[in-house]
């Protein structure tokens, strides 16, 4: 299988990697860039655990090839906090107990980041709808919704 040398720009940093054509963006982030915050829950595009932002839009990193992401701005959970400080969304997740095992959390954080950037004044009904993109088995979603609402309310 032919290998490809490429550069991924993740959270503003350039990662020069060499990967087979079939390597997914999720695997490249985890294994070639060492950014294991992005998780894999199904590898078939349903659970959303692998959600990252590519040029601002939430995508399933298990369904995108690494070679397709060259030249794009990729953002992952590792880029949310600044230094030791959680960003407001991360803080709201812990304040509202929106995570238990934390496996789905990076995906939800990136999904919600995109939602709030797109429309900081999003109504609850649309939030519920958009959050249904991702799966969580621990929390029952109620507290995830509360956390996202709290951030939206603070920005209003």
């Amino acid at each position: 299988m032919k290998d490809h040398a490429l550069t991924l720009t993740v959270n503003g940093a350039a990662h020069r990697i060499t990967v087979p054509a079939r390597r997914s963006l999720a695997d490249a982030l985890r294994e070639d860039c060492g950014l294991t915050g992005t998780h894999l829950g199904c590898e078939h595009g349903v659970c959303g655990a692998c959600t990252v932002l590519v040029d601002g839009a939430p995508i399933r990193a298990c369904l995108m090839l690494a070679v397709q992401a060259e030249g794009a701005e990729i953002r992952t959970v590792e880029g949310l906090a600044s230094g030791g400080t959680l960003n407001p969304l991360q803080q709201a997740f812990t304040d509202h107990h929106a995570l238990q095992c934390g496996f789905c959390t990076p995906g939800f954080l990136m999904l919600a980041t995109a939602m709030l950037e797109e429309n900081p004044a999003m109504e609850e009904a649309e939030m519920v709808d958009r959050l249904s993109a991702n799966l969580c088995r621990c929390t029952g979603y109620t507290n995830i919704l509360r956390a996202v609402q709290a951030v939206a309310a603070a920005r209003r």
Partner: peptide
């Protein structure tokens, strides 16, 4: 448990 999990620094 939360800070590491929220920063993508869990170790699964």
């Amino acid at each position: 448990e939360d800070p590491a999990l929220l920063r993508g620094r869990g170790r699964f």
